[in-house]
């Protein structure tokens, strides 16, 4: 298993870079993963990442992108609940990239 080192601590990831232990996640790890994805974390990015973490807390899954988009629209407003907004923040896919930064597993049904 590959590892990433952040602030002197080692974190286990899978071969695609997703954190293995959800509970180990913290903002520094998120920042680190974001850098490897060439994502520059802004307040808007954190909003989505925080949303994903609370979604996971509630439902125990990472949502599919369609479900995420709809749920974000409901929670944060229609101007954010659309794929254009989310893909601008996370160019390689909001579900895949944002989930990775949020320390969640890859969304079910995502190949």
């Amino acid at each position: 298993m590959p590892n990433i080192d952040v602030n002197g601590k080692s974190y286990e990831t899978d071969e695609e870079g997703y954190l293995v232990n959800l509970g180990e996640w913290n903002k520094d790890v998120a920042d680190y993963i974001a850098k490897t994805e060439s994502v520059n974390m802004t307040e808007q990015h954190w909003e989505v990442v925080d949303f994903l973490r609370s979604y996971y807390d509630e439902y125990q899954i990472a949502p599919a992108v369609r479900v995420l988009t709809k749920a974000i629209g409901k929670k944060l407003g229609a101007e954010k609940g659309n794929s254009q907004y989310l893909y601008e923040l996370f160019p390689y896919g909001p579900a895949k990239q944002a989930c990775k930064i949020a320390g969640l597993p890859k969304p079910t049904g995502c190949v």
Binding site: E58, Y59, Q60, I61, P63, A64, V67
Partner: peptide, 14 residues
């Protein structure tokens, strides 16, 4: 083990 019963509540969103 993972409590996947919570996931049934997400089905509506799907």
């Amino acid at each position: 083990m993972k409590n996947f019963s919570l996931t049934y509540r997400a089905l509506e969103g799907y």
